[in-house]
Design a protein around this nucleic acid. Structure first.
Lengths: 203, 203
DNA sequence: GTCTATACGAAGATAGAC
DNA sequence: GTCTATCTTCGTATAGAC
């Protein structure tokens, strides 16, 4: 639920190096994202997405091996779009807070995320498993580096492990978004920001 | 993913006040839980569970209104069993750490939990939505009370909101269990316990 | 109350024609 | 590259036996 980098993208699904295929692929991802925004990840079948684009559901499977792969691609695409790729000046906590606030503003995003994480837990080697294993690992690494720097700069307390705090912060952000969706009285932003207080150096 | 109380249980699904029905209902829940342990929440259709018990899949719908309701009941049943209902002496953090460690030891449990949370996000009024909304609210309340007590006793720093910390701790526990399943090198226990350090009074 | 049999519609996936 | 047709499995609903 956080940042994506702007290096050459690893494409999920068939390459589709030809112009029409590439354009079609983009269109599918964007129309599919629309369907999710309006109807959630549940009522969103291949057939429904296909109907909304005006093709048969089999056509979608020409670009993606399976429904799951399409869902992962949609999530990745949506995430990569809405992300100014993290002002370097911000603290680790601030980066996550901003990402979370944007995230809960997009209807269906947390639901899609949670759905895919659930299927990632089901079996190894599946598209969602591969994607989220790598995603978690990458974000943990990024945050660990930030925390390590902050510790060196005296902006983070010394008695915690940067790697542990990275995993903890991601977990807290993910979990709080879910709780907020189920009960908006949960103070997502304030709570996440409290993390800064907890992590402040013990002077 | 935490504690359940031992008050008279609210039964999900039909009451089944007759002896045979009650026993059957129990058997269904336990056999269904087995299927989840072995095959995960994905390949687990009503028909498969029914076949494993030796009944028709329609029979399951005599006890539960829908597949989703059955899943919720299975989760609730499994959770209520493995839970000595939280040594009162423990700190709030310790309670969650213990629950989390037990949880990740049961195959399929986190997957079932995450699957149901995902469907809880999909629509209001569904069985999973009702269950998890109440569950989160209940656990937050329990933890908030504990934190408030700890603050009064001088065992918790003063500059945080007990209610915020309750939501944060639950979120961290849920999220870390997921990350641990995808990457066991994530130090679930140590990381969660670090929370105690973060929350210690600023002396 | 408990359960089987059966039917329906929707879903993901595949094969093969164009 | 896209379609139609088809297969299998699924959740759900109903009718009716015991």
């Amino acid at each position: 639920m956080t940042s994506e980098e702007n290096r050459p993208r690893r494409v999920i699904g068939r390459a589709g190096s030809y112009e029409k295929g590439v354009a079609r692929r983009q269109e599918i991802l964007e129309r599919a994202a629309e369907v999710f925004r309006e109807r959630g990840a549940d009522g969103t079948s291949l057939r429904r997405i296909a109907a909304m684009i005006g093709v048969s559901h089999a056509a979608l499977l020409h670009y993606f091996d399976s429904r799951e792969q399409l869902l992962v691609a949609v999530y990745e695409h949506a995430e990569s779009q809405r992300d100014t790729s993290g002002e370097v000046a911000d603290s680790a906590v601030d980066v996550l807070v901003k990402a979370a606030m944007i995230n809960i503003g997009v209807p269906g995003m947390v639901e899609l995320y949670t759905t895919l994480v659930a299927s990632a837990l089901a079996a190894e080697g599946t598209p969602s498993n591969e994607f989220f294993s790598h995603r978690f690992a990458r974000i943990r690494t990024e945050l660990t580096e930030r925390f390590t720097e902050e510790q060196a700069a005296g902006r983070l307390r010394e008695d915690v492990e940067p790697a542990d705090m990275a995993a903890l912060l991601i977990a807290a952000s993910d979990g709080l978004q879910i709780q907020w969706l189920l009960e908006p009285s949960v103070e997502l932003e304030r709570t996440l920001e409290t993390f800064s207080v907890l992590l402040a150096p013990t002077s």
